[in-house]
Simulated assay, not measured.
Amino acid sequence: MKLIIAGATGFVAQELIRQSLRHPDIKSVVALARRPVAAPPGAGADGSKLKSVVVKDYDDYPEEVRRELAGADACIWTVAITPSKSKRLPFEEVTRVCQTSTLAALEALHEAGVGRPFRFLYMSGTAAERDQSKTPSWMPEYSLLRGETENRVLAFAAAHSTPSASAPPDFSACVAKAGLITHSYASSLFALGLRLAMGVPSVRLEEVAAAMLQQVTTAHGFEKEPLQNEDLVRIGRRALGEGRA
């Protein structure tokens, strides 16, 4: 399998790369980022599987980049502006990064000639609201933007899949709606406080990465859509327990 990990310098993407290099079914990892990416510390295994591909920005894919994307079997998209950072930026820039770039990447992947079947896993969050008629109580403009992006990703995949009555879609998409991602003792304590005070769910970094990798590598396709935080915890723990990450 050839896997693209977009936003490869982020902390979730770095864990995805670390686990991918140890995964026996993944033969090639394309680390797509705005600066060169090396194998993360502790990755071990086969670092030769990693190919760093640099883009000026995630909405610009020149021909030499498209050649590196060609033939991919799956892409995990982690590119986004976090809720806290979005408060400090013009909303037009948040929209460009969170939505415009995602859709531009889908167009580039399709035009580059990805494998069939192809899976696109879009990493979002639990607060993203797909129903655009609603007004979320928490960061409504941001939550609606992320939800609208989810809708557009799913619509793109549906429009570019070849229909078949006897097989899963050959161009499919799914959304991973993660809660707060913990990666240390301090972040776990913070997550516990948020869950008790506000009901915000959480998932460990290793779990969310293992879950997403399991979903793009399994022969059966995505288990469900969307993948809620509790699904990511369950699938991730199972994958880690099986020694596949």
Rank of each mutant, 00 (worst) to 15 (best):
V97C: 00
G243V: 10
L189N: 01
K27I: 00
E68N: 15
E64V: 11
T82R: 14
R238A: 11
A239T: 13
A209R: 15
G243C: 04
E141W: 01
S137W: 15
A108K: 02
G115S: 13
G42P: 04
F120I: 01
I76T: 05
R66L: 01
L213I: 11
S52K: 04
P169V: 11
S172D: 12
D131H: 13
H23I: 09
K134M: 09
L106T: 08
R244C: 04
V12W: 00
Q228T: 15
Q99P: 00
G7H: 06
P36A: 15
A210F: 11
A191M: 06
H160M: 07
A211T: 12
R237K: 12
L154V: 12
E68D: 15
A112C: 07
E68W: 02
A80E: 06
R238Y: 04
R34W: 00
E230L: 09
C174P: 02
R130E: 10
K85G: 08
G115L: 07
Q214A: 12
G236V: 09
S172W: 07
P140V: 14
L192R: 15
G199N: 08
A105S: 09
V53L: 03
R88I: 07
S172V: 14
N229Q: 10
R204Y: 13
E111K: 08
V233A: 03
A13E: 01
V233E: 08
T78V: 01
V216L: 07
P83A: 12
D59V: 06
V216Y: 05
A33F: 05
P163V: 08
I26V: 14
A39S: 10
E111Q: 11
G193D: 05
E242M: 15
D73H: 12
R130M: 13
R146F: 05
V200Y: 03
F222R: 04
V175G: 05
H160C: 10
D73L: 08
A43H: 11
H23D: 12
L205G: 09
A70G: 03
I17C: 07
R18Y: 01
S52E: 03
G10M: 07
A178M: 13
E63T: 11
E15V: 09
T218K: 03
F120R: 05
A209Y: 11
R146Y: 06
K56S: 00
D60H: 10
A158K: 13
A108Q: 07
I4Y: 04
Q228N: 14
R35W: 06
V97N: 00
E148F: 05
A112L: 06
W77Y: 12
E15W: 04
G199T: 12
G71T: 08
A39N: 07
S20C: 11
D25Q: 15
G236T: 04
S164A: 12
R244F: 03
S184H: 08
P117G: 11
E223G: 01
V29R: 03
G241W: 02
F120D: 02
H220M: 12
L32P: 00
L50T: 05
S84G: 02
I235L: 14
T217S: 10
P226I: 10
R204T: 10
G47H: 10
